[in-house]
């Protein structure tokens, strides 16, 4: 079975972002990057699917050549090959929900299973996985916390406000992965050594124009300063009084 894990490098979680001089995006000059949190879960599920059903895992990303650093980490954890769909201008043209899944369609067509994180932790848009599936005419279950594959039949569970939703579907399929699906492994020394010999290929994907125009980017307004109402259990009456008369939430 051919399996693709779509991954993205994103600004590190602890990043305090700065707005670029033109006010239209993030200042990328001094950013540290990491593999997006949910993409680690997607990669882990891809590797587990290969271990259970055989086949090959391709880690796919869209971005500049530098994104191969995160792909190398995926290879060290157990992916068989990496593929960078080159897009040197990915930052200036953010955000672009349509071009990203379009660029993934070529690689996905050769696979039976595509795993994505539930959302990338930079744009938080949660759109690429289901858009890709719809473009391909495939099944898709999002925010998956449990997955079972039996030949070309599969079942998955996801959590919504309504409860735990159970889905039945057939492959090929796109699965977006939620925390709880698995515990991602770390790369061991053996994996890191093996990764050096694994191939990373560069591809020129079909890049369509973004249908999104950025109007402006800003930092969120600061909350007005609050106050300490007191220390220890003795402060409880003052807190309740403030919640009742000032905040009016009781």
């Amino acid at each position: 079975m051919n399996i693709v894990a779509c991954i993205k490098r994103v600004p590190a979680t602890e990043t305090q972002p700065k707005v670029a001089a033109d006010g239209m995006g993030l200042d990328h000059s001094a950013l540290e990057y990491m593999l997006s949190f949910y993409d680690e879960i997607a990669l882990e599920e891809a590797i587990r699917s290969k271990e259970a059903h055989g086949g090959e895992v391709t880690a796919l990303t869209l971005g500049p050549t530098e994104a191969s650093k995160e792909l190398r980490d995926c290879l060290a954890r157990g992916a068989d090959k990496g593929r960078v769909s080159l897009d040197p201008a990915c930052h200036p043209r953010e955000p672009r929900t349509t071009p990203t899944p379009t660029a993934a369609t070529d690689t996905a067509r050769g696979a039976e299973l595509v795993f994505c994180g539930r959302q990338a932790t930079d744009r938080d848009n949660a759109a690429v996985g289901p858009m890709l599936a719809t473009m391909l005419g495939w099944s898709c279950v999002t925010d998956v916390i449990e997955l079972h594959i039996d030949g070309t039949s599969a079942t998955a569970k996801r959590e919504s406000e309504r409860g735990i939703e159970h889905f039945r579907f057939t492959l090929p399929a796109v699965i977006t992965c939620q925390k709880g699906l698995n515990e991602p492994r770390y790369a061991g020394l053996k994996g890191i050594m093996a990764a050096k010999k694994k191939p990373i290929e560069e591809a020129e994907p079909m890049l369509v124009e973004s249908a999104t125009e950025v109007v402006g980017v800003s930092l969120p307004p600061a909350r007005p300063a609050g106050r300490i109402v007191g220390e220890g259990p003795d402060a409880v009456p003052a807190l309740l009084e403030a919640l009742r008369t000032e905040a009016k939430v009781l």
Binding site: T15, R123, E213, G216, S218, L219, P220
Partner: peptide, 12 residues
Amino acid sequence: TLAGKLITRVRA
């Protein structure tokens, strides 16, 4: 975006 650390205004 960035979990609320940045506010982005966009149009189609």
